[in-house]
Write a protein that binds this DNA or RNA. Structure first.
Length: 367
DNA sequence: AACCTCGACAACCGCAGCCGC
DNA sequence: CGCGGCTGCGGTTGTCGAGGT
């Protein structure tokens, strides 16, 4: 298959485009359409190869391109689609009107990928990086050995497909950090140390091994905040109240019922542990002027929709331990609202990974 | 002020696949 | 069916500006 000669011809300019070149390209395409990219530069009077013109147009000059920072909604969609599609940037871009594959790819590599890595999540597989965890610590932990433990951690081993389950990472990270920070933590109230997240339990129980080597779509457990409406835990007011009571501000729960949360909070939650935990704000930033809700027609009627995030209680916390999280005081709860710092996105991302694939999103079309 | 480092993003490179001849 | 042209796509590199020393 012969390769098309491109910019290697003498006299063809490379590098950044000048405003004059941009204008020439725009004028020509507006008048004639791009037609054959190969002949376009000559007809438009540009000393560029067709390929360069095409890239410049599709990635930068196209009038429908949306520029500027990615919104939370867009970021969420990117992460979710990437977990399904992998590096199919063009397919992902097709779900994000106004964004180009190049832009998404760049954003992924410079922002999201790093953030996921920081969170201990493999950006390729979207799985918790268990290699970063000291599994022996988990296996030797009291909660693992306890007869009270309802979590069969041994299933962690060899459960690759559970990988898409951020709860696993949360659990493992929490176990590890809590054990390190406060070895007595899990021993203090063994009767109350049961993991109260039915999702976690159900996931461990409901994934027979033969289901764990299936296609990517099936690998994604139906573990979703939207499917767990009964996990109110704490709202902002409660969090503030908690702070007022000198309770750990950065605390979380395992998605338990409120009464359980409180019991856990009252009896189990160690202050040391809280220092490494990320508070999950109840994000209502979609009311922000800067974040017009994006509605993908394909997703509009599905659970897989950014607006559903409003209905998802993000008090259902992520307990991902991040180095930067410990310095964020929760006292100023408004800090989280309509804000978009990297740290907050760290927390947010952990929930983004917690999703279900709507039926209406026919991922097979990308496969 | 000069230099260095790093992040963000635009642009390029090269491969793969489609399509017409 | 094979070949060559063309386009799309994903990975990589280059450039530039901001911030730090």
């Amino acid at each position: 298959m012969g390769r098309a000669p491109c910019c290697d011809k003498d006299g063809l300019k490379k590098g950044p485009w000048t405003p004059e070149e941009d204008q020439k390209l725009i004028d020509y395409i507006q008048k004639h359409g791009h037609g054959s990219w190969r002949t376009l530069p000559k007809n438009a009077g540009l000393q560029r190869c067709g390929k360069s013109c095409r890239l410049r147009w599709t990635n930068y000059l196209r009038p429908d391109i949306k520029r500027g920072r990615f919104s939370f909604e867009e970021e969420e969609i990117i992460i979710q689609l990437h977990s399904i599609l992998g590096n199919k940037w063009s397919a992902i871009a097709a779900r994000l009107p106004g964004r180009t594959d190049n832009e998404i790819k760049n954003y992924w590599n410079t922002h999201i990928r790093k953030r996921l890595l920081r969170m201990g999540i493999d950006p390729v597989t979207h799985s918790p990086r268990l290699d970063l965890l000291d599994l022996s610590s988990i296996l030797n932990s009291p909660i693992y050995n306890s007869s009270q433990a309802q979590l069969d951690v041994s299933k962690l081993i060899g459960i690759k497909p559970l990988v898409n389950n951020p709860e696993l990472l949360r659990l493992a990270t929490t176990l590890l950090s809590s054990q390190r920070e406060n070895p007595e933590f899990l021993l203090q109230n063994p009767q109350e140390n049961q993991l109260c997240n039915p999702q976690v339990q159900n996931q461990f129980a409901s994934f027979p091994p033969n289901q764990l080597q299936t296609d990517p779509v099936q690998e994604i457990p139906s573990c979703t905040t939207s499917s767990a409406p009964s996990v109110p835990c704490l709202n902002k007011t409660q969090l503030l109240q908690t702070n007022a009571e000198q309770f750990p501000s950065n605390y979380t729960s395992f998605g338990c019922q409120e009464s359980q949360c409180n019991a856990w909070q009252d009896n189990v939650m160690p202050s040391a542990l809280s220092e490494n935990l990320v508070p999950m704000p109840n994000y209502d930033y979609f009311g922000s002027d800067n974040n017009q809700p994006f509605v993908d027609p394909l997703l509009e009627n599905s659970n897989f929709h950014p607006s559903n995030i409003n209905n998802q209680n993000f008090g259902f916390a992520s307990v991902l331990s991040t180095p930067s999280s410990s310095t964020t005081p929760l006292n100023s709860s408004s800090t989280y609202i309509n804000s978009s710092t990297e740290d907050e996105r760290d927390s947010y991302c952990s929930n983004m990974l917690n999703f279900e694939i709507p039926d209406i999103l026919d991922v097979n079309e990308f496969m």
